[in-house]
Amino acid sequence: MGRIVLDTVTKSFGDAQVIPPLDLTIEDGEFAVFVGPSGCGKSTLLRLIAGLEDTTSGKIAIDGNDVTQVPPSKRGLAMVFQSYALYPHMSVRKNIAFPMRMAKMDQAEIDKKVEAAATSLNLLDYLDKKPGQLSGGQRQRVAIGRAIVREPAAFLFDEPLSNLDAALRVGMRMEILELHKKLNTTMIYVTHDQVEAMTMADKIVVLRAGNIEQVGSPLELYRNPRNLFVAGFIGSPTMNLITGAAAGSHGAETIGVRPEHISVSATEGTWSGTVGVSEHLGSDTFFHVHGTGLADTITVRADGEVDFKYGETIHLTPRSDVIHRFDAQGLRLG
């Protein structure tokens, strides 16, 4: 069980308020992702939940119990750190067994659980090695193993994959998701990578300067961004944001059109411009179009077969049913 409720939680470091009053509920079994630019307070929020930072005011409850004053060791949560934070003086086996030994579990049961965790995480051959002798991916697995054996109420991950190379990252992402499906335990995952957020989350919490900008499922955020910040943050490549007359004609201060919602043509369209740099991904091609008079660059996504040369004229037509409209305050209209 792991339903986590934050009730008007604030956090200040000295005079600087990093988290303004914030309410948030994470349901039992949910995979929640905190996402936002660097320095927006994601780690701080996670550490408040973990108990590694004290709240300045407000309450935190886990499964209905107020844990605001409870030390991290008694909250029943497990955390995986970006730096892995393995115990360098202990073997992999001892690292994984550590939380169980601290809980004074039976040695036979500890051995059994270590074996089980090592098997599922592919660590059997490394049980007697020290963390220093392992690769980054293996260390990450040990950190996860150490977290799962104690069957916590929730797992907290702080950018656990950012020290891994791209290929390994994708693999570990799947492993963590797999783990979530298998254990069905609440997981809170911090990342600044919106692709990671989109692919993993049941619920995304978009943060900016400690404020929650929007909470919702990946598709909700993608389809109905509540404001310009979320619109610009979710989706890759980012949404095209257009101001001026083109926006005015839709009765908005700013309109947003996603690259995949613009069709291209060599002959006719609503807008036109010249093709700049293009990115060929094989399946898709992204064209960066200049000189449209709408914005510096308009990014469009086209089929992989479509080919426009650098400097060619291109005509663009946005899909009218998926144009996002924002007012002068940057809030969504309609």
Binding site: G51, P72, S73, A78, M79, A85, L86, P99, M102, A103
Partner: peptide
Amino acid sequence: DIIEAAQMDGV
């Protein structure tokens, strides 16, 4: 981090 990890591990 290592000290904090230990705290999370119930120490």
